[in-house]
Design a protein around this nucleic acid. Structure first.
Ligand SMILES: [Zn+2]
Ligand SMILES: [Zn+2]
Ligand SMILES: [Zn+2]
Ligand SMILES: [Zn+2]
Lengths: 135, 135
DNA sequence: ATTGACTCTCTAGCGACTATAGGGTTTATG
DNA sequence: CATAAACCCTATAGTCGCTAGAGAGTCAAT
């Protein structure tokens, strides 16, 4: 049942340093220690960290995850903050998507300016980068 | 013709600190100094920094920009490295786009799990985040 | 002479870790 | 039982591309 940090790391797929970092940032409760000062975890710790990992995979920041975890400890309050966080995050992702799509298009256009191996002084990409004034 | 760093900053739209940072990272040549130890720039500096700014707007890293600038100083070599950099960068952007699109879809699906303000213990979002095991 | 606007260097901070150094602990093997 | 391998500890520095600040110096105008 009990395990040390290495086992927890392989059970969760997180790195040992990441787990210690989450502890320092107060996303996970301070674990107990063995006689040799090793951190001791159990199955609850695994679930807790898998929750965090899943949120990180969705791109949530540690502060956002912290807020979700806080709400989880107050099961009788409303979950409006949760909806708020997800909605905000969706908006951020949408904005970033739009930016990246524009970028992609500009890069594609730029790439067509050079056929293959020309002399650098004749390279259409360099010319374009040097001449274009603003996006 | 000559100008100090503040003027250069407003001519290029970059911050003063960014310009000094580019100098430190050797993306721009060490500028001359006035008697009072102020950096002195000219029109060439403006073009140089606008080039950098344009590349940054395309998401290129400072190292990539450094490589482009190096090629520009060797006008008789081939521009194959330039194509290489752009191609690599397009690939990075494409990968990131795919990731973000998946993320967006997962977030959208997650958001539908909660109607509006329920009690936190009944919130479908929290439940989903806690139960889903892997992406 | 004193303000104010500008500039200088140096340092710390952001986010979310990773990597290293220099130790201590536990476990397995001979 | 001794030793080596594997594991763990803390503390610190580094990543990237800047931003923000402290504390000092310079230059123009009033
Ligand atoms: Zn967010
Ligand atoms: Zn070319
Ligand atoms: Zn790139
Ligand atoms: Zn809810």
């Amino acid at each position: 049942m009990n395990m040390k940090i290495g086992t927890l790391a392989s059970h969760t797929g997180l790195s040992i340093q990441a787990i210690r970092y989450y502890e320092q940032q107060e996303l996970v409760p301070t674990p107990g220690r063995s006689s040799g000062n090793y951190r001791i975890y159990d199955e609850t710790s695994v679930k807790h960290l898998v929750f965090i990992k899943h949120c990180r995979n969705l791109g949530l920041s540690l502060e956002e995850i912290k807020a979700l975890l806080r709400v989880r400890t107050k099961p009788d309050e409303t979950c409006s903050e949760i909806n708020h966080i997800i909605d905000h995050h969706v908006a951020v992702v949408d904005r970033r998507l739009t930016e990246l799509q524009e970028l992609r298009q500009q890069l594609g256009a730029l790439r067509t300016k050079c056929g293959e191996n020309q002399a650098a002084k004749d390279c259409g990409i360099l010319r374009e980068l040097f001449e274009i004034t603003s996006p």
